[in-house]
Write a protein that binds this DNA or RNA. Structure first.
Ligand SMILES: [Mn+2]
Ligand SMILES: [Mn+2]
Ligand SMILES: [Zn+2]
Ligand SMILES: [Zn+2]
Lengths: 147, 147
DNA sequence: CAAACTTTTGCAACTAAGTTGCAAAGATAC
DNA sequence: GTATCTTTGCAACTTAGTTGCAAAAGTTTG
């Protein structure tokens, strides 16, 4: 349960993020953004559809995630089982330019997926001819809670 | 175009792989396996359905890929756009136990996905509590041909 | 090599995921 | 508060993936 002050702070943060991304303030966007701010795990499309207080149409969720991606509010996490998860970007990400060069962890027991913001992706030496632009590192195993 | 000797060698290899995996020899399995042996890129389900000489049912392709996975004949490659690709395992993979600890490269221009067998996944130091079992590294950028 | 047996395949029918066009509802600007 | 522009929900659609089942193909045995 959130204290009133924290609640106000979070609502302000939501408005800030939407405003600096030049997005109009709608219930759907606020709810979905709140979900991300409240959760320390990455969320699947499914989670988002299920967990908002008010139900939003599938299509609305798709479109919201898409525009949040474009604006650099969230980033995707590819997982071995081919289910995309979404997580908040840190402040450095701007419109059309992500800088999420951290490692992700997926728990095989509980399925929780987290950003390890402090673990940078290691440098990878590639054979001649390959020009790398992006390196995704996804570690799977058991998380703190499931050990 | 394959020389007759190479052709015979490949057909033998196909039979060998199916036999040591204790799979019965069927046209579908032979065709799909041949596709993997002929291609130096990873293949999507779609590619496989499209490229076999004889057309096989979607369901057959799904089931074949599934059993090839279980038997350690192929492994999956997760990509940022959430499309699974499949590639041959090296000989070290056995039934239910994969050892594909190499880096994968996805070209953003042509979409080709390759196993960089010689580039091992780097060690990743995780915060306390996380127990890693598997590390997936997918590098995307431009490949040799597209530079 | 043919009968008996086992496994695989294709089909139909289904669920889930994702996309598009459009009119109505909502947000913003004046 | 009204005009304008944006977003939403709905319907309708495409694509991806799953399951049960009977027919077809593969394997084993004598
Ligand atoms: Mn992340
Ligand atoms: Mn590989
Ligand atoms: Zn866990
Ligand atoms: Zn390329």
């Amino acid at each position: 349960m959130l204290f009133p002050t924290n609640f106000i702070m979070m609502e302000n943060q939501i408005l800030n993020i939407l405003h600096r991304s030049q997005l109009s303030i709608t219930d759907g966007r606020k709810s979905i953004l709140r979900l991300f701010l409240e959760s320390d795990n990455a969320l699947a499309h499914h989670d988002i559809e299920a967990r908002t207080q008010v139900k939003f149409d599938r299509v609305t969720v798709y479109r919201t995630l898409q525009i949040f991606m474009e604006k650099g509010i969230i980033h995707t996490i590819p997982t071995a089982d081919n289910s995309i998860k979404y997580a908040l970007c840190r402040d450095e990400c701007e419109q059309g330019h992500h800088h999420d060069d951290h490692v992700h962890f997926v728990c095989k027991k509980c399925g929780s997926t987290v950003c390890l913001e402090d673990v940078h992706v290691p440098a990878v030496r590639l054979p001649k001819g390959f020009k790398p632009q992006q390196v995704e590192v996804v570690v799977s195993g058991t998380c703190k809670e499931c050990s």
